[in-house]
């Protein structure tokens, strides 16, 4: 009995530690964003201080950060949505049909995520310049599809494979077409997987830096680009940087928290069958 309650205490302690470690750096960022420069540069660092909204006032004084958040939102939502629309039928085919070269095709999808953006940035830049797409949302959306789609295909294929085949066979006996089966059975039942892949897609495109640095200029600078722009090496306004960081991290964190209950169910990663 004693060991049982010991175990319980240990369990609780462990969970608390997970919570504390996971949240601490972000807590530090948020609390730093309310510090004055003097408090920020205090050595050793201060834990209790009089909070100031000055950093936020500065951040919102120019349109840059707000419009960056809006740009990131547009790019992340559309690229994720497109990737899901394109990726789920493909995942369905990979999960349900037999055909030659299937595993190679699956691997080809995945391998699109392996390519270093440094090699592709210049060709894409030249192409975008030629098509007049530089500094538009469209070019970022299209480029981001290339690394979100593999994730969608991967996670959804695994998720669809975990759906019992009997359901499909029953539907087929009632005369359902293949598209019906996909639309009426697989999509609803695969929702956890789709949600997880959408979360990851959203996070990845929200956070992408290298392509955005090269392909954007004035109008569609995304959040990470703006975050790094304060790091000019010339001045380090830590309060402003941390406030910007908070503003940028907040929307994606809220989004992730909202859908986090799907997180565990959807990440089967092939663990079924």
């Amino acid at each position: 009995m004693a060991s049982r309650s010991n175990g319980r205490i240990l369990h609780g302690f462990g969970l608390l530690a997970v919570f504390a470690v996971a949240i601490f750096p972000v807590y530090w960022m948020v609390s730093s964003s309310f510090k004055t420069q003097t408090d920020l540069l205090a050595s050793p660092p201060v834990w209790l201080f009089t909070p100031t909204l000055g950093n936020y006032a500065e951040v919102f004084a120019d349109q840059k950060v707000t419009s960056a958040v809006v740009n990131s939102l547009i790019v992340a939502v559309f690229s994720t949505a497109l990737a899901v629309v394109l990726g789920t039928p493909a995942a369905f085919a990979l999960a349900r049909y037999d055909f030659r070269g299937k595993s190679d095709l699956w691997f080809w999808f995945i391998s699109n995520r392996f390519i270093s953006p440094i090699a592709l940035a210049l060709p894409i830049y030249i192409l975008a310049q030629g098509l007049g797409l530089l500094d538009t949302h469209l070019v970022l959306i299209l480029v981001y599809i290339t690394f979100i789609l593999p994730i969608v295909v991967w996670i959804c294929t695994d998720q669809f494979r975990s759906i019992p085949k009997e359901l499909e066979e029953a539907a087929r006996l009632e005369g359902a077409s293949q598209f019906d089966i996909f639309w009426r059975i697989y999509l609803p039942l695969g929702l956890p997987g789709i949600a997880v892949s959408a979360i990851f897609g959203f996070i990845f495109s929200w956070n992408e830096l290298l392509y955005a640095l090269v392909l954007t200029r004035r109008d569609v600078q995304t959040a990470p680009v703006v975050a790094t722009s304060f790091m000019s090496g010339y001045e380090l306004p830590w309060g402003k940087i941390m406030a910007t960081g908070t503003v940028i991290v907040l929307p994606v964190t809220i989004f992730a928290l909202l859908v986090s209950r799907h997180m565990v169910r959807g990440l089967t990663m092939g663990a079924t069958k």
Partner: peptide, 14 residues
Amino acid sequence: EIVPYENTREKEVL
């Protein structure tokens, strides 16, 4: 277009 110094030459050369 305001660009950090580190990226200026990159942007211009491209």
